[in-house]
């Protein structure tokens, strides 16, 4: 009995052990490869080398790194602030001011969740071209500000917001926008934290839409730069590795600092 249990445990450890190793290996590969030359990387060398400084030097020679990083950060921060502000207003509004018409509007908003981006990108591109917004950062951000997912997330969370707080604030003579700003937002800060992480990460990692809209080197974000470095005719993978590290570090940092909110945000859709 005890022996079979021990064997069972061993199998389970082996299973999750292999899964954990395979999950982490590409990260280790990224770090190790950043110290190797492109030839060594493509030759499968999995030990640290001496090319780190050269790779970093080449990366900074080929890429205006501060500008690219700044572009990514600018887009992600703009997207996060605007999306959270506008979409949380709506999530709160749909729940607090219910009416038949608005519930119907809400169902339609939810319906847009299933619209694939591929079916939007052509008209969106034409719209942006017409308004002269091609190659601007605002064009990246605009279509995502009203996010059905974030609206849904906030509406679901608002169900747990104590109505007494709102009633008390009303008796005190606060206006609706004051209640939202001074009572709702602070009370719901953990919901906000999770939503901020989702939107920031999605925006930082966004690829297809920026690929379409951003066309000059002055506006490109880090994901675009990594992608174009790696798809060059004869890519220097040492340089590519420096790029992937820079692209991954912020999200990795957020993950480790705010793991709880991170996971809560991901689960938000089913709770």
């Amino acid at each position: 009995m005890n022996l079979s249990r021990l064997a069972g445990d061993a199998v389970q450890y082996l299973f999750v052990g292999i899964a954990a190793f395979l999950s982490v290996f590409p990260f280790a590969w990224m770090v190790i490869s950043s110290t190797n030359t492109s030839i060594d990387i493509l030759g499968g060398k999995a030990t640290f080398g001496q090319a780190f400084a050269a790779n970093v030097g080449n990366f900074f020679a080929q890429v205006d790194a501060p500008l690219v990083f700044w572009n990514s950060a600018k887009v992600a921060v703009m997207a996060t602030v605007l999306t959270i502000a506008i979409s949380s207003l709506a999530g709160y509004g749909f729940e607090m001011f219910r009416s038949k018409t608005r519930d119907r509007v809400y169902s339609m908003v939810l319906l847009t969740l299933m619209v694939p981006f591929a079916a939007l990108m052509i008209p969106l591109f034409m719209m942006m071209a017409k308004s002269g917004l091609i190659d601007t950062h605002i064009a990246i951000v605009l279509p995502g500000i009203a996010s059905a997912f974030i609206i849904f997330y906030f509406r679901q969370s608002t169900k747990a917001f104590p109505v007494e707080l709102r009633d008390a604030a009303k008796v005190d003579g606060l206006k609706e926008w004051q209640i939202f700003l001074y009572i709702y937002v602070p009370v719901m800060r953990s919901t906000y934290a999770a939503a901020i992480i989702i939107v920031f990460m999605a925006s930082w990692n966004n690829y297809l839409w920026p690929l379409i809209v951003l066309q000059s080197n002055e506006t490109k974000t880090i994901t675009l730069v990594v992608s174009s470095l790696a798809s060059a005719y004869n890519p220097d993978f040492g340089v590519v590795m420096i790029g992937t590290i820079l692209a991954t570090l912020p999200t990795l940092f957020i993950f480790f600092v705010m793991q709880r909110q991170f996971v809560q945000g991901m689960l938000g859709s089913v709770k």
Partner: peptide
């Protein structure tokens, strides 16, 4: 108020 809150998103 209901429409004002959801208006921008809609």
């Amino acid at each position: 108020n209901g429409w004002l809150f959801i208006g921008p998103s809609v």
